[in-house]
């Protein structure tokens, strides 16, 4: 597509070059003074480790596996998230446990192993969408970094405690109820 470029005719003042330069210098000087007088907190630059950006609501950061009040994991090991994950970074192994208090003798499923490879995760939030129990949330922590690859292979307890200190919750390392050995129900 042809575009007609209109040549700008400069006035004599602009063609002296001195006046436009003076204008430009005034602009940079203004910026200099303004930036010099602005307190650090109100400058555009967010000086990262000291100051952090407020993330937008709905930001998809580091995952958290949600828990009940008693500390039991909400996840029921349905594998929906692992299926939905486009990066295939979620690994789940299920186990059974007796939930005698809540459901009178029913046996429930929960993940024995729940691993997310953070180096593979693309933070798309599909796992969160897929979860029927609202057990996995992507929240606002974006500082997922470490010195070696293995420590970024987050396990079940890592994922359950990712926001423990931020929310003021206790760090848990054990399920409140023991797992029961798997039984085959004869039909």
């Amino acid at each position: 597509m042809g575009v007609i470029v209109k040549k700008v005719e400069l006035g004599w003042l602009d063609r002296t070059y001195v006046w436009p330069v003076a204008k430009g210098m005034a602009i940079t000087f203004g910026h200099f003074i303004r930036q010099l007088l602005t307190p650090t907190a109100r400058r555009f630059t967010i000086q990262y480790p000291d100051m952090k950006r407020e993330v937008a609501p709905g930001y998809r950061g580091l995952h958290e596996l949600k828990r009940f009040e008693g500390g039991a994991i909400k996840c029921v090991a349905c594998f929906m998230c692992a299926e939905a994950c486009p990066a295939r970074c979620i690994t789940i192994e299920a186990e059974e446990f007796g939930d005698l208090n809540a459901h009178q003798g029913f046996e429930e499923k929960r993940p024995k192993v729940f691993r997310i490879d953070m180096l593979r995760c693309i933070y798309c939030g599909m796992c969160e969408e897929a979860c029927p129990k609202d057990a996995i949330w992507l929240r606002n922590d974006y500082e997922v970094a470490d010195y070696d690859r293995l420590s970024l292979n987050f396990g079940k307890w890592d994922l359950m405690n990712t926001y423990a200190s931020a929310d003021g919750k206790a760090v848990i390392t054990q399920d409140p109820t023991p797992a029961v050995p798997r039984r085959t129900i004869a039909v």
Partner: peptide, 10 residues
């Protein structure tokens, strides 16, 4: 520093 200030940087 001056360059930064003129470009609204730190």
């Amino acid at each position: 520093r001056g360059a930064a200030m003129m470009q609204d940087r730190i």
